[in-house]
Design a protein around this nucleic acid. Sequence first.
DNA 1: TATTGTTATACTCTATAACTATA
DNA 2: TATAGTTATAGAGTATAACAATA
Lengths: 152, 152
Amino acid sequence: MPATAADPQLDAFAAAFDDFVRAAKRARARVEPDALLTTSQYDLLCPLLDAGDGAPLGLRELARAAGVSAPTATRMIDGLAARALVTRERSADDRRAVRIALTEDGAAAVHQQRARQHARRRALFDQLSPGERRAAARVLARLATAYERVEH
Amino acid sequence: MPATAADPQLDAFAAAFDDFVRAAKRARARVEPDALLTTSQYDLLCPLLDAGDGAPLGLRELARAAGVSAPTATRMIDGLAARALVTRERSADDRRAVRIALTEDGAAAVHQQRARQHARRRALFDQLSPGERRAAARVLARLATAYERVEH
DNA sequence: TATTGTTATACTCTATAACTATA
DNA sequence: TATAGTTATAGAGTATAACAATA
């Protein structure tokens, strides 16, 4: 029935991949409900925390890093500013630009989210034997580079 | 600075995990734009294809399998029915229930999506050496079970 | 009373196109 | 003309609460 010959190894790989994706999705759904930030908001604000100490960044910069369009970032920042998690000010040197910075509450929220993510990673890690840990790190890194080489 | 002692192995695992997630997200973004179905729609309709040959299922059944609420499934089915990818009929035996079935176009759309997913998996698989393929299948399966055991 | 599904409502995420203001 | 950002518009996905119809 299939157009291509069956490949048991590929089938095993695909099945494992599916199981992994589904398990990760369920795990995320279990944790997300009471988080202060959605995943998208976390991705958008992360560069501000990494820039450190209230250092502001431009909207375009945040949008590009998070992989969203500028209007999407504007909308998201609207909501986050309304919750007083970020400030948005017109830049003095270039009056077209805005300078977006984390408030204390905003930095705390991003920190909290990061800590949760670390805790989840650690809980997963803790389930593995030492050999499995090494294998997992190697495989995930390898898959990441493989993805980048697939029909760019 | 960190509250817990540094663990280079955990750090390597977490970094590899992050890289993997980001690479997967980028790959998905590259492929999705011209697909007939979104990922959510595909997840909702998959059980209908698996049930086979126009066999109808109830709305609640589809919602539960896809992990969404009943109103969400109703909305999604509204859109899919408007595009003539599914039919929705009141059941004769239980007049509360609706029977949702794929049309020919709907089945073709789900098939197409599945074929694309397989092609992407295969392309990734093809990047790996035989040893890496075995290791990847083993690790992904292991991580899936580990997820299920994390603070249920 | 319990179940199936829909409507009402509300919010987030997402994009493209058109616009403003500044450089 | 080019760049930074916003507004307008549109649509998907998501949920909870309230409802209708049927069992």
